[in-house]
Structure formats: C-alpha cells, structure tokens
Simulated assay, not measured.
Amino acid sequence: MAKDKIEPVEAQFMKEQFLDSSRYTALQKDVLSGLLEDGKLYSLSDVDRQLQDFLNREVQA
C-alpha cells in the first residue's frame, strides 16, 4: 500500500489579528490596514508577500 502524503495546512488569520500582532511595526500595520480586506482569512506568508510587494513597488510620479 502506498502512503498518502499529507501536506501541512498553514494557519490563517483575520485582518484584525494581524493588526493586533506584535510581529509587525506600526508602519507595517498601517499599510496592512489598507491592503487587507475585513472578514477575509490570510496566512502569514500571504500577508508577508503582499506587504513586500507593496513596499517594493515603484513610486509613480
């Protein structure tokens, strides 16, 4: 019998939980408050990726 490979599921959190977290600075929380949608679940990697994408965007003049 072949064993099925079980993929670990990444924990997901609400926007409010990220904003209350000590993981992010006040500036990062301000950015996240605008990027994340209320009532939607996000994983840590999703939020970190969105934050980095936002911070690395080129400024348009």
Rank of each mutant, 00 (worst) to 15 (best):
Y24M: 00
D48H: 09
D46M: 15
A26S: 13
L55E: 13
R57V: 04
D30L: 14
Y24I: 02
K29P: 00
R57F: 08
S21D: 03
S43L: 01
E7C: 01
L32N: 04
K3G: 11
V31K: 07
L41P: 00
Q52E: 15
S22H: 14
F18W: 05
D38R: 14
N56E: 14
Q28E: 15
L27N: 14
L27K: 14
A61N: 04
E37A: 13
D53W: 09
Q12N: 07
E37Y: 11
Q60E: 15
R57Y: 07
K15C: 03
E37S: 12
D53R: 14
A2H: 10
L51A: 07
D20M: 13
L55P: 02
Y24D: 05
R23Y: 06
V9Y: 07
Y24C: 02
E10D: 05
N56M: 14
G39K: 02
L27Y: 13
E58W: 09
Q60S: 10
S21G: 06
L51D: 06
L51V: 07
M1G: 15
R49F: 10
L32R: 04
S21R: 08
D20F: 10
D46K: 13
V59S: 09
V31W: 09
L27T: 14
M1A: 11
K3S: 09
D48G: 00
V31D: 11
K29W: 05
T25K: 06
K40I: 13
D53T: 13
Q60P: 03
F54A: 12
D48V: 08
L51T: 08
A11N: 11
K40D: 06
L35S: 05
K29Y: 00
Y42V: 03
G34P: 02
Q52C: 08
S45D: 12
T25W: 01
L32T: 04
S22G: 12
S43I: 03
E37M: 12
Q50G: 13
F54G: 02
Q52T: 15
R57G: 07
L41M: 12
L35K: 02
V31Y: 10
L55D: 08
Q17K: 07
D38Q: 13
K5W: 10
F13H: 08
L41I: 02
M14K: 12
D53S: 15
I6M: 03
L27R: 14
T25N: 01
Y42T: 04
Q60V: 12
D20Y: 08
L55C: 10
R57H: 10
A61G: 12
K3R: 11
K29G: 05
K5D: 12
D4R: 15
R23T: 11
V9P: 01
E37P: 01
G39F: 03
E7A: 06
S43R: 03
D30W: 08
L41Q: 09
E58T: 12
E58C: 06
